[in-house]
């Protein structure tokens, strides 16, 4: 089963929920899909066993064959090619690696290479007296604007026989869609403020369009106002967990210590969360 932890707004506690949930379950795997700012491993400190570079396809022009007809540049939806009199320029940052240019080239002068956009790391978080927690993360190269190909790659390491917890990037655009697509359930983490509510509504729009069953977690639940709860009631969205603000835990968080490592009894709460998710899934 694949559970994605997402939120419209950043900083609501996605990584806190995802890492603690993963640490609380016996046979689980954590996948950090927030490849722009992967933070899960700051808490999990996994032992990395495998590290591989991830690229996207990038056109390579055979200038011997090229007649500079300009078909490739006209066909490219992303303006990633410019054809000059005696030269074809490729702009790697704009290229989506779709292959249109090589498909349309009448001279077969467009081949394909690869541009490295980041790395995928696979490992385990050792645990005493129980199975290790599986760990995967993607790290996007700084300056590389396009994260979806890397997200797609890290998702391929999912081991569906385990409970797979995917940590999503914030927002509602392509990297988030790429992460949530194919999940069995989505946990939307929010906070009870006008910002939290506004961005929760956007996130709900995304998961509804994708048709993924979902529930809400309200973090810092003892602060703010009642609007998020009322919204969930109105929309008949299950609130699966409320986490009150706790300064000691916030301090532990700031140092990179997971909640359930500081308070092992809290694992029970996350196991119940999984049971509630399973109940929701039976209901749908």
């Amino acid at each position: 089963m694949i559970i994605t932890v997402a939120s419209g707004k950043g900083g609501t506690g996605k990584t806190t929920i995802a890492t603690n949930l993963a640490l609380s379950l016996p046979a689980a795997q954590y996948i950090d899909c927030d490849v722009e700012e992967p933070n899960g491993n700051l808490f999990l400190r996994a032992r990395i066993d495998r590290r591989l570079e991830v690229g996207k396809p990038l056109p390579e022009i055979d200038h011997q064959r090229c007649t500079f007809c300009g078909e490739c540049a006209r066909a490219c939806e992303f303006n990633a090619l410019a054809v000059l009199k005696k030269k074809v320029m490729v702009f790697p940052e704009l290229c989506h690696g779709c292959g249109v240019c090589s498909y349309v080239c009448p001279e077969k002068a467009v081949g394909e290479g690869e541009k490295i956009i980041g790395v995928a790391e696979v490992g385990v978080v050792p645990r005493e007296g129980e199975d290790n927690l599986g760990f995967v993360q993607g790290i996007l190269n700084v300056g590389e604007p396009m994260s979806p190909p890397l997200i797609k790659r890290v998702k391929q390491f999912a081991e569906p026989e385990k409970i797979v917890i995917q940590d999503a990037p914030p927002g509602t655009s392509c990297p988030v869609i790429q992460t949530i697509n194919g999940s069995d359930f989505c946990l939307l983490v929010t906070e009870p403020t006008p910002f939290g509510l506004n961005d929760l509504e956007l996130a709900v729009g995304v998961v509804r369009q994708l048709g993924v069953p979902f529930g809400v977690i309200i973090n810092r639940s003892d602060s703010g106002d009642q609007e998020v709860r009322e919204y969930c009631r109105r929309e008949q969205i299950p609130v699966l967990l409320e986490m009150p603000m706790n300064r000691d835990l916030a301090f532990a968080y700031s140092k990179g210590i997971p909640y359930v490592r500081e308070v092992p009894a809290a694992r029970e709460q996350f196991r119940r969360l999984l049971a509630d998710i399973e109940k929701e899934l039976r209901r749908c």
């Binding site: 396009m146 914030p170 927002g171």
Partner: peptide
């Protein structure tokens, strides 16, 4: 600005 370091931040 937006969060992250990807396309909208750039």
């Amino acid at each position: 600005g937006p969060p992250g370091i990807g396309c909208p931040v750039t």
